[in-house]
């Protein structure tokens, strides 16, 4: 059962990166869209995201619940030493979620109020994945010190280092990229589609640059990232698969295939997460001094893991079909309309 629970944890994290990421990305795209096109982008985005955005964010909750029920010690350590970035991420989620729905449901579409909602929305869409990435980076950067000597070493340098920040920026770029790819398929006319393709290209280039920055930062912080990724067959295959799917994706875009590409983009990001995840399996958190926190060792008692596993399995029978039906019906209907 432990493996089932870990599989669900990984699934929830990956899906949150993909779906939540695309969601944040939409805000990032809006941030970098010229004023003249903003309202069109917003409209496309609203139609594409409106019905599903709440559901996309539930993956985070699932991941958190699995963590505190199944791996309580790891969860409590992360919450303690990554308190600050978690807090900022929460602020981002709050600001973004409320601004998104306020701007749609404000009965009077006043210019000033809408401007405020838009501002809050786009900036928080940027900050949230940045800190999500920072947290992800910190977890593997060996900067978390379980016996800190001062506030700064315990609660600040645990996450404020080149590597974590580089991962944060990389996450932002990936989110923007995912969103652009997704929106290409939702565009109402060719003009819009071309705009989103351009965005996707820019985001892709930025992501590559930040990806390089991640490796550079890893060197500076003495994290053997390159060795980890290129030193074991699974990660290596995952990286190659990601690269191939990236190439396929651009070929398909220029062939005018606009929906199928999102699968390749999703695959690509999943492969990146797999490459990174595999390399530090089974450690969830790598801490200073080398006593890493392992998912295989620091889990809840077996009875809890069993019950949690069954809960997740039964729950997914209820959730997954209805979720697919949700995505499917709003896709189909959008095409008809």
């Amino acid at each position: 059962m432990l493996y089932v629970v870990i599989a669900f944890l990984f699934l929830a994290i990956v899906l949150y990166f993909l779906l939540g990421g695309a969601d944040f990305g939409a805000g990032i795209i809006e941030l970098f869209t010229s004023d003249k096109n903003k309202s069109r982008t917003r409209k496309t985005m609203y139609q594409a995201m409106g019905p599903i955005w709440e559901a996309n964010h539930m993956w985070l909750i699932i991941a958190v619940v699995i963590m505190f029920v199944g791996f309580p010690f790891i969860y409590s350590q992360m919450c303690t030493y990554l308190h600050i970035p978690l807090l900022i991420m929460l602020l981002g989620i709050t600001a973004r979620g409320t601004a998104f729905s306020f701007r749609n449901y404000d009965a009077i579409k006043g210019e000033n109020t809408q401007r405020i909602y838009n501002h809050v929305f786009v900036y928080s869409s940027f900050v949230t994945p940045l800190f999500l990435g920072i947290i992800a980076g910190s977890v593997i950067s060996r900067q978390i010190d379980l016996h800190p000597t001062s506030f700064v070493t315990g609660y600040i340098f645990s996450w404020l280092n080149y590597f974590s920040v580089a991962v944060g920026l990389f996450t932002v770029a990936l989110s923007g990229y995912l969103a652009a790819i997704y929106l290409i398929g939702e565009a109402e006319d060719d003009n819009d589609a071309r705009r989103f393709i351009k965005k996707a290209r820019v985001m892709n280039i930025i992501a590559v640059i930040f990806g390089g920055a991640v490796f550079l930062a890893a060197e500076i912080e003495h994290i053997r990232l390159a060795h980890w990724i290129f030193g074991n067959p699974v990660s290596l295959v995952a990286v190659i698969a990601a690269t191939l799917s990236l190439i396929t994706l651009w070929v398909l875009i220029y062939k005018g295939k606009r929906k199928i590409i999102r699968i390749f983009a999703g695959f690509q990001v999943t492969m990146i997460l797999l490459a990174v995840g595999y390399m530090h399996w089974p450690y969830m958190v790598m801490v200073k001094g080398g006593q890493n926190l392992s998912l295989m060792a620091l889990h809840a008692p077996p009875k809890t893991i069993d019950d949690l596993g069954w809960g997740l399995i039964i729950g997914s029978f209820l959730i997954l079909p209805s979720l697919f039906y949700l995505y499917y019906s709003f896709q189909k209907k959008n095409e008809v309309v």
Partner: peptide
């Protein structure tokens, strides 16, 4: 949470569902 999570977490996971 470190101690209570595994004990009272069940309703929270079902609640997530």
């Amino acid at each position: 949470m470190e101690h209570a999570g595994p004990i009272f977490g069940m309703p929270f996971s079902l609640e997530g569902v």
